[in-house]
């Protein structure tokens, strides 16, 4: 069973492109969106477990220069139309 995590990020001024490129290098990242609003970037990750999410977050995402703040959500269920 896989888990889908959504990581909303606030980015430092002039760091958007660099941060997006760093996210794209992370293997478990499925989608990266540039946003306008309270958050600047949204990354969607599909992981096998919360431990794996922790490993990716602690060793990759948390080390990306230019991220001011992150807010992580997990998807419980998805509904499409």
């Amino acid at each position: 069973m896989t888990l889908t995590a959504l990581i909303f990020c606030q980015i430092e001024h002039k760091s958007l492109i660099k941060v997006v490129e760093k996210f794209k290098e992370i293997p478990k990242v499925q989608k990266v969106f540039s946003l306008t609003g309270d958050y600047d970037v949204l990354a969607e990750l599909i992981v096998d477990s919360t431990e794996e999410l922790y490993e990716i977050f602690a060793n990759k995402i948390d080390l990306i220069d230019g991220i001011i703040e992150t807010n992580t959500h997990m998807i419980m269920s998805s509904w499409k139309k």
Partner: peptide, 9 residues
Amino acid sequence: YGVDSLIGT
């Protein structure tokens, strides 16, 4: 087009 139920803020 889609709705995701989340755990978080």
